[in-house]
Design a protein around this nucleic acid. Structure first.
Lengths: 187, 187
DNA sequence: AATTAAATAGACATATCTATCTGTATTTTG
DNA sequence: CAAAATACAGATAGATATGTCTATTTAATT
């Protein structure tokens, strides 16, 4: 079964708008206009706006990790790989105009009752944390006495998350680069 | 000049709703209904919904620090004071049903062009970071070789921020308590 | 007591929102 | 070529949004 071109256009436009102006501030009409598709086509592929959000988060997660793999695929040294994670995020913040983390943004926007949304977001976060843990396990730590590997992974994850919030709030990458330097000291 | 009771009620209701269901998902009508005031009264005190948002953030910042002072006023030891910051945030997350950080949430919701909103949010963040720095300066560090005081403050700030995001996403305080334990190791 | 200020109720304008529906045209597939 | 799926345009429903306006009542201040 071939992927529909219309479906792709809808999802791409919706993704861009959801991230740039927010889910709640983006109307179906604008998506229809900018994707240049018919109203009925949209509702054919996505029964409701909320379904479009689900598809957006799922696709965004896949792209996030795929592009990260691409970003670090040349880097063999696990320590450098881990540190490149900060560069990846910094680069993305520049590329997307310091809009912050896509997933965190959704969490902040959806209603409390929307448990599925939180589940989708936490899925990406957990996957990232596993990723960090795996990289750390490959590193021969200089300061193993400081804390256990799992705690170190958590520390790095939390700083990365906090730094991305800062990137959004301050509209710069200072915190992300600080977090990178701190991480270097901890390894 | 006495504070208007109506104004207070409006701001309190708006604050609760903005935080609980989001700024964009909260309508003026709901604020009017729940605050039990007249439509014109609202627009008398706040010319627009956006002005209400500004007042909300400003007041939230004052309350945030005032309540923190209250929370730690008995704690004299600067190290314990600093660590109490994590408890404060954890307690708030429980109290407010893991809705995440009030300020970060606003950042995630407002339009890119709303520079004033980002300014208001970053004001609270910067003030918190200063607060952390000041506490650290009072502590006699066990591991001064690890990193400079300013970097340590930044690390703690970022973990705290990241942990609050996690509290929101996962609906628990695990990350905040982890961040506390990590901070203990770093001091 | 008289003046000013603040609060009330509620109709109204205008715009936008999501979603449905009808009917036609195009494209893909058997 | 015929059948089925997909896309099209656009009217429409029904709800909700923010903000304005009129007119009356209550409360505070001089």
């Amino acid at each position: 079964m071939k992927e529909s071109a219309a479906r792709e256009r809808i999802l791409d436009v919706a993704s861009r708008l959801f991230y740039n102006q927010g889910y709640n501030s983006t109307g179906i009409n604008q998506i229809i206009d900018e994707a240049e598709i018919a109203r009925a086509s949209l509702y054919n592929h996505f029964p409701s706006k909320r379904d479009l959000l689900t598809a957006y988060i799922r696709q965004a997660e896949e792209i996030w990790f795929a592009e990260f793999d691409l970003f670090v695929h040349k880097i063999k040294d696990p320590k450098k790989r881990l540190l490149a994670l900060f560069d990846y995020r910094a680069e993305r913040q520049v590329k997307y105009n310091f809009g912050g983390c896509q997933f965190t943004k959704v969490s902040a926007e959806v209603s409390r009752e929307d448990l599925q949304a939180f589940e989708l977001v936490s899925h990406q976060k957990s996957r990232l944390k596993v990723y960090i843990s795996e990289m750390i396990k490959e590193i021969t730590l200089n300061k193993p006495q400081l804390m256990k590997e799992e705690m170190l992974a958590e520390a790095i994850f939390l700083m990365l998350e906090g730094a991305t919030v800062s990137a959004n709030v301050y509209k710069n990458n200072k915190a992300i680069l600080d977090a990178k330097r701190i991480t270097e000291k901890l390894l």
